[in-house]
Computed example of a mutant assay.
Amino acid sequence: MFDLPGSWVWDFWFADDGDGYHLFFLYASRALRDPDARHYRASIGHAVSTDLVNWTQVEDALVRSDAPAFDDLATWTGSVVRHPDGTWFLFYTGATAAPDGKNIQRIGYATSPDLHVWTKAPGPVLEAEGPWYEKLSSGAWHDEAFRDPWVFPDPEGDGWHMLITARAPEGPVDGRGVIGHAWSADLRTWELREPLSAPSPKGFGQLEVVQAEVVDGSPVLIFSCLGDQATASRRGSHGGTWAVPAESLLGPFDIDGAYPLTDESLYVGRLLRRRSDGQWLLFAFHHVGEDGLFVGGVTDPMPVRWEGDRLVRQVPERVDEAPLAGG
């Protein structure tokens, strides 16, 4: 697994440059003592690997900007894609504090020629707007949820799509989590579109760190949500990462059909196809231990397969995993 002795490591995402793998991750110093305080001290770290098991930490990718800026509180989860001209784009969540102490989330990006040195674009490119998406002014939720951009090329070659953790302005408060959607022709300018799912009494307050992939020929959406942030009908499921079968990478996504891919001990599941053999793998971070306390650290790869219409994970046989402490 990948972890750091002096920091908590949690949300993460990957990039494959054709030769090696790049892990981008959120981390914050354990000197904070309280793991809940990590969110407002998050930076985006970077590590590299050739086998997806042994990782070497390299120079950080991004840190928060000086105020005033849309990301002056923290830089949060995102995704990386490569433009046809060779430029790498890292889309990320920027958080800033609202006057009442809550936070507002917007989406920005940075570019790089080599995945190592990143230059932020000025300002955000997307934020929550009506009539489709809930604003902080509604008072219904603890933040203005508009984060975790997952960007991928259109399957038909028509530009790029972004899936977003967002909330609808109507519906049951703890079931308003929706898959936000935006489109771009060039990765730089984005058009906000209506969500690809609907709020539901059987849904979730937030669909965190969304990802859509075609795994062995079948489209699937994964996201994460804990029981205390979901509708009552979901709280007994103890799911951490959830999966939803889909018709395509653009849904529509029937969130009522979501089922647990992991329990709450593992959070923020990510799917990645191993280049060497085509095997699809699931990664997650260690969320809570048996004592109920936050753990942190990214797991080793766990193979996944379809059993009927459900995606399931296989627990890795490797038992001698040892954290690699940065370098």
Rank of each mutant, 00 (worst) to 15 (best):
R106D: 05
D114L: 01
P113M: 11
H116G: 03
A97E: 10
A121P: 00
D114G: 03
A110K: 08
I107C: 01
K120C: 02
L115G: 14
T111C: 00
L115H: 15
K120I: 04
D100L: 05
N103M: 07
V117D: 01
P99F: 12
T119W: 03
A97P: 01
P99T: 02
A121I: 03
H116I: 11
S112G: 05
A97N: 01
T119P: 00
A97I: 09
A95K: 08
D100S: 15
Y109P: 02
G108S: 08
P99Y: 08
A95R: 13
N103K: 03
T111P: 07
D100C: 12
K102I: 01
Y109N: 03
Y109Q: 00
A98E: 09
K102G: 13
A95W: 14
G94I: 13
W118Y: 12
T111S: 05
G108R: 13
T96S: 15
H116L: 13
S112H: 02
A121N: 08
V117R: 15
A95Q: 13
Y92T: 02
W118C: 08
K102W: 02
A97W: 08
A121W: 10
S112N: 04
T96A: 15
G94W: 00
Q105C: 03
P99S: 11
L115K: 13
T93C: 13
R106G: 04
T93F: 04
R106C: 11
A95D: 01
G108P: 06
G101A: 01
K102N: 08
A95P: 00
T111D: 03
W118E: 04
L115Q: 15
A97Q: 12
T96G: 10
D100E: 12
R106E: 12
W118S: 09
K120P: 04
G101I: 06
D114A: 07
D100R: 10
A110E: 08
P99R: 02
P113A: 14
D100H: 08
D100V: 11
W118Q: 05
P113E: 07
I104A: 06
D100F: 11
H116N: 00
S112Y: 04
Y109G: 04
A121Q: 12
P113F: 00
A98P: 05
T119Y: 01
T111G: 06
I107T: 03
Y92G: 10
R106F: 07
A95L: 14
I107K: 07
A110H: 06
K102P: 00
G101Y: 07
D100I: 10
Q105P: 01
G108W: 10
T111M: 07
V117H: 15
A110C: 05
A110R: 10
R106V: 09
D114W: 05
W118H: 11
K102A: 15
T96Y: 13
K102Q: 11
T96K: 15
K102L: 12
I104E: 03
A110G: 09
D114R: 08
A121D: 03
A98W: 08
D114N: 13
Y92K: 04
H116M: 09
R106S: 15
V117K: 12
A98G: 04
P113Q: 00
T93D: 05
P113C: 08
N103C: 10
A97L: 14
K120W: 04
P99V: 00
W118G: 14
G101Q: 11
